[in-house]
């Protein structure tokens, strides 16, 4: 493998996240919120990239798995932790990551439950089934009073900070990268390229796909936990299939199965709406005198631009913005 000490990069990233976290007290809270949202976006996009990009599946249910993780870890923090007295002080530093992992594991189970039966399906069928599963998860959450039902779940402690978000983001990107960067891992790409040939070469394609679903959903679940403890409340409506599409668009824009491209796209697409919202609340002075020109319409046009961008991207550059039109770097 090209970088024998790949872990070094991971370490640097983790230390940087810690350092940033230590000084986060002096960062504007709104900005901090946006930045942490970026971290969550990176986790979501990179994990979906494993499923949709590298393994060539098409999941439209990522938000559903995110919801499972979010609710699991939020319930642990709001119900279990206070009862056991784990929510505060030093114990919080153990309990919170543990609850994130728990959320990830439950999401992974959900992912396996969805993946296993759906994997004989291809392309658009798989997309619809995963979409369906995502919606079922949402409908169920809306109907279970114990987790707040349609009103949502409030009072989630806001444990998420820069260390957790960027630590998780770095770990996710590293894991997906390292997994792929091996002879066994190249099998994911082979499965994406040609299932018949992959089976003929001895690859259990079903197992590859299920693994991708499991790992991808695990990280989606962890992202959900981060999100829950970032916002402090959860609302089932926030995990609708529009959210799944948003994550899919990150993966596509980043060039399906590109590590860095997808990270970059996740950053861009998380910042863009915030930027446009910010811009929309301003107005520019009228050079001819008279009332200032309001930029309010931008708020309105935001989603229209977004959908147009998606269509144009598919028509003009279906391989994504950051695709180099070159082969992937060989793994040895």
């Amino acid at each position: 493998m090209a970088i024998p000490k790949a872990q070094r990069w991971l370490l640097v990233a983790l230390v940087l996240s810690g350092a940033a976290s230590a000084v986060s007290g002096s960062i504007d809270p709104y900005f901090l919120d946006v930045v942490m949202g970026v971290g969550v976006g990176v986790v979501l996009a990179s994990s979906l990239n494993l499923i949709n990009g590298f393994t060539g599946q098409f999941s439209l249910g990522h938000a559903g798995f995110m919801a499972v993780g979010a609710y699991t870890s939020a319930m642990l923090s709001t119900v279990v932790a206070p009862r056991m007295g784990w929510g505060a002080g030093a114990l919080q530093w153990v309990f919170f990551p543990a609850s994130l992992v728990a959320g990830g594991l439950v999401a992974a189970l959900a992912g396996l439950a969805v993946g296993a039966p759906s994997l004989r399906l291809k392309g658009d069928y798989l997309a619809i089934v995963t979409l369906g599963f995502g919606e079922i998860i949402r409908v169920v959450l809306q109907n279970v009073d114990a987790v707040g039902g349609a009103r949502g779940l409030t009072g989630v402690p806001t444990h998420t900070n820069l260390l957790w978000t960027f630590g998780t983001a770095s770990l996710t990107v590293y894991t997906v990268w390292a997994l792929l960067e091996s002879t066994r891992g190249r099998g994911f790409l082979a499965v994406a390229d040609d299932e018949v040939a992959a089976e003929a070469m001895g690859l259990d394609t079903t197992r590859y796909k299920i693994t991708a679903f499991g790992i991808g959903s695990f990280f989606a679940g962890v992202a959900g936990g981060l999100y829950a403890h970032l916002k402090g409340y959860l609302n089932p409506g926030g995990f609708s299939f529009e959210k799944s599409i948003e994550i899919v668009v990150m993966v596509i824009l980043g060039g399906m199965g590109r590590h860095a491209g997808v990270v970059f796209a996740a950053i861009l697409l998380t910042l863009l709406p915030e930027g446009l919202r910010e811009l929309g609340s301003r107005s520019i002075p009228n050079p001819f005198g008279g009332p200032a020109w309001s930029l309010d319409w931008i708020k309105d046009a935001r989603m229209i631009l977004y959908s147009l961008l998606l269509i144009l991207l598919m028509l003009l550059r279906p391989e994504g913005l950051f695709h180099r039109r070159q082969p992937r770097r060989p793994s040895s």
Partner: peptide, 10 residues
């Protein structure tokens, strides 16, 4: 399919 989703969103 993605284009179709885009058209739908649009």
């Amino acid at each position: 399919l993605i284009t179709a989703i885009g058209v739908s969103l649009l």
